[in-house]
Amino acid sequence: MLGAYVLLGAVLFVLGLVGFVVRRNLIIMFLCTEMMFQGIIINLVAFGRYPLAGAPSFDGQVFALFLIAVAASEAALALALVVLLFRHRRTLDANALTLLRDE
């Protein structure tokens, strides 16, 4: 049973990672990191239920709850940044962030 859950978590994580690298819209990129966090949460809960060593513990579920909180605070920051950026330059394309670079 554990294998299936870990596989699902890995699929979500890798999809998020690929999306982060491939997509250029800042909102989509942020949603991709959220998807990576969902994969991690599935992983944690699965490992909490079926640990490889020792008895099942609640540590994984507690970790998952805190990860949701961390992801929420990152979401708040991401939305604030996106709103500010859109006001400044009317686009959310990551490739348009070119004020700072090597000469």
């Binding site: 990191t33 490889l52 970790f63």
Partner: peptide
């Protein structure tokens, strides 16, 4: 800074989830 930081935080957390899985304790 934020986007790359969020990515690296996710990678760290994913690693931590495996370490937790191996040991069954945090």
């Amino acid at each position: 800074y934020f986007y790359l930081g969020a990515l690296s935080a996710a990678v760290t957390a994913y690693g931590f989830s495996f370490l937790y899985g191996v040991s069954g304790t945090a």
